[in-house]
């Protein structure tokens, strides 16, 4: 196991380096400049700016300069907000995004799994239909529409929750719910489908025959296997949700990471693009790794650290 983990960690570094390299050249390949403005700027001013950020050097040179600073985990200063370093941005944005993400993920996983299990137990019954209708709505109403509707109803018309910004727990409810509906629906459907499958397995029938209650069967036998597909998608879901959702952050004026990332790309703020990408990728790869480990622990049939068939 230790050897497997060590191997994977090494592979992670390689993967990350490949991502850094591709992203670096990708972002320099697309047209645009951090200093593009609709309004007038003289060429001399433009040149001063470029020189200031070493953007006048060949891309390869810039690449090695970047790798060097990356080795010390220094993401450099933002070009657009020149007094802020990218490290500071991530330090500010990530905790906010993570807080929101955890909250909505908790909502999504708990309600999704419960809905899914109920639906599976009552396969083709009324509860199943209701749960799945709920899930379909959750998937097919995208979160930006959901968010606007939630604000209009619950905040403007009924004045139960504040409209936007990020200052008190009450402010977190609407964005967390808006962000949770999609993943919740996905989890509900996945849980339902794999639960139905598991419930038809022989060992469940055996358990039933032994006279175990439905509750015992679900908790002791079925859930463990049924949740495997859920765990598979959880890795990417966690990474996606915790590093911020741009749309939700924009609508609710939440100072999270998603905003930095998207604005970084729109502004061609190269250090911000790189910094957020590296952070996000490292986080994501870590999550996928954890999922793989969790898989091995949860499913006795999978042995990860053994090579070959």
């Amino acid at each position: 196991m230790a050897k497997y983990v060590a191997n994977r960690l090494f592979a992670m570094l390689i993967t990350l380096w490949i991502i850094v390299t591709i992203t670096f050249f990708l972002m320099h390949a697309i047209p645009g400049s951090p200093f593009n403005q609709e309004r007038n700027t003289s060429e001399a001013v433009q040149r001063n700016l470029e020189a200031h950020y070493h953007l006048n050097e060949p891309v390869f040179v810039q690449y090695f300069i970047y790798l060097k600073s990356l080795a010390t985990l220094d993401f450099g200063p933002s070009i657009k907000q020149s007094s802020t370093s990218v490290n500071e941005m991530i330090g500010r944005g990530f905790p906010v995004s993570a807080e929101l993400g955890m909250l909505s993920l908790a909502i999504a996983v708990i309600s999704g799994v419960i809905l899914g299990i109920f639906a599976a137990l009552k396969h083709n019954g009324t509860i199943d239909y209701i749960a799945m209708t709920f899930a379909v709505i959750g998937i097919s109403v995208p979160n930006f529409i959901m968010a606007t509707l939630l604000i209009q109803q619950l905040a403007v018309n009924w004045e139960i929750f504040p409209v936007a910004t990020w200052s008190s727990p009450m402010h977190m409810v609407l964005p967390a719910v808006a962000l949770a509906t999609g993943p919740m629906a996905i989890i509900a459907r996945l849980t339902r489908s794999s639960m139905i499958e598991v419930l038809n397995q022989d060992y469940i029938l055996t358990a039933k025959a032994k006279g175990m209650s439905t509750y015992q069967i679900v908790i002791k036998h079925a859930m463990r296997n049924a949740l495997l597909p859920v765990i598979t998608i959880l890795g990417t879901l966690v990474a996606g949700v915790l590093t911020g959702s741009f749309v939700i952050e924009k609508i609710f004026a939440i100072p999270g990471m998603g905003k930095y990332f998207i604005n970084g790309i729109n502004d061609r703020d190269y250090p911000v693009i790189m910094g957020t990408t590296v952070f996000y990728s490292a986080f994501l790869i870590m999550m996928l790794f954890i999922v793989d480990i969790a898989y091995g622990i949860l499913d006795p049939r999978i042995k990860l650290h053994k090579r070959g068939n």
């Binding site: 209009q152 910004t165 004026a253």
Partner: peptide, 18 residues
Amino acid sequence: WAMVDDTNTEYQMYKTGD
């Protein structure tokens, strides 16, 4: 000074007196 980037949200905050 708030920092709300979305016109719909800004309008809704205006409506609620924020």
